[in-house]
Write a protein that binds this DNA or RNA. Structure first.
Lengths: 210, 210
DNA sequence: GCTTAAATATACCGATCTGTATCGTTTGAC
DNA sequence: GTCAAACGATACAGATCGGTATATTTAAGC
């Protein structure tokens, strides 16, 4: 292995092990054994384990967001369809045999204090993903792109969490259907602005079902 | 402290620390120091740390589901409203100062292998919560209570995940609004059974917005 | 009140943790 | 081809991990 590749190889190995076993459960000794590298080499590239984690998360953040952009842009051309195509990207991620949940959520779950740099790195990634959703929602000319982005984001996180437990992609497909329903409802409400007050719709359509 | 209370006290202390720091990061020595108990005592009640984790999760599973039932049944009387009231229960949980995310998701996140007893315990809890949602959806006379329960469940998980990062209850309120919208749409579609095929609704309501 | 089980305190075990020190070997840049 | 920097291998440090052993004190049930 060429020396210029070692750092990236270490980060890739670390990400693989973090995904497989988690952060605390992944020891330095296992990491260097898997990477086929001396301990001295690891600590020449990263001062501490935390620095390694932060560098790995940063690498993965950039990778995954770039992959999502490319996937989505190739899958659909219209912004509205691209919002829904983000679920197809998520589905592909979840279908990966190695899928064990979102590594950023895992990172935040193992570093729970809000001031922890690892927690903050995870939060930053989620903010950037959310910003991409908002960008798409804005391009799709939604009147409240922030709220639309929050909606997509919530469905993504819910599907990811459930898929982590069930080990199936079905929650992702379901969340896409929910997104389609909610977005079409948004569009319907936008061109037919009724004076109906919010919060009154729940009991109306209840009793007379079935 | 009376001896009969020690086991419960140990489990409560363990749950508090697991919630604060996670499972791997919570050491036995810290646990017994916080509980004010000798190490011998801990190991008389639990054979291993894993047994302690499993007992703690079982305790919390029963506690939280019982609390949710009581909260929901007191908050609303109609099954349909009770489905939405589950979000109010979630909001109360999230507003707790000590909220650091769902401990069952954290447990699964730190014990990622599907055969791991801790992972299975977390999965079992989620199945039981889902069963409760289905029970409510059935009582609310939805034609597909399983699917409705999946919908509520996905919104719960999404809101919980995002609240874990943002440390606010807003995602929960948003997910409740999304649930209300989706359920009312379900009800509307139920009494007006159109022949519109599924999957065709996404591109229809797109171009003519704004 | 006696007995017995369970609590306490403490010392200890081997393994593992992150991180460092030493030293010989290899590599890449000039 | 030289030389400095980076590599590999290994040993080790000090702390902490989960868990055990021992010996003494406490408290609950008959």
């Amino acid at each position: 292995m060429r020396r210029s590749e070692i750092r990236g190889h270490l980060l890739d190995t670390a990400l693989r092990l973090f995904n497989l076993h988690g952060y605390h459960a992944t020891g330095i000794d296992l990491l260097i054994a898997e990477a086929g590298v001396a301990k001295t080499t690891l600590y020449r590239h990263f001062e501490t384990k935390e620095d390694l984690i932060l560098a790995a998360l940063e690498r993965r953040d950039e990778q995954s967001r770039a992959e999502m952009r490319i996937f989505v842009e190739h899958r659909a051309s219209e912004p509205y369809e691209r919002l829904l195509a983000t679920f197809d990207f998520l589905e592909a991620s979840v279908r990966d045999k190695q899928f064990r949940g979102c590594i950023f959520m895992s990172a935040a779950g193992e570093h729970k204090e809000a001031v922890d740099p690892v927690f903050r790195a995870a939060l930053m990634h989620k903010r950037l993903v959310l910003a991409y959703f908002e960008e798409l929602a804005h391009a799709a000319r939604f009147s409240e792109p922030k709220r639309i982005a929050d909606t997509i984001n919530l469905l993504h996180e819910g599907a990811t969490a459930i898929a982590q437990l069930t080990r199936t992609a079905e929650p992702v497909r379901q969340s896409k259907r929910m997104a389609a329903s909610l977005l079409s409802e948004e569009a319907r409400a936008a061109k037919e602005p009724s004076a109906r007050s919010e919060g009154a719709e729940q009991q109306a359509s209840n009793a007379d079902r079935a």
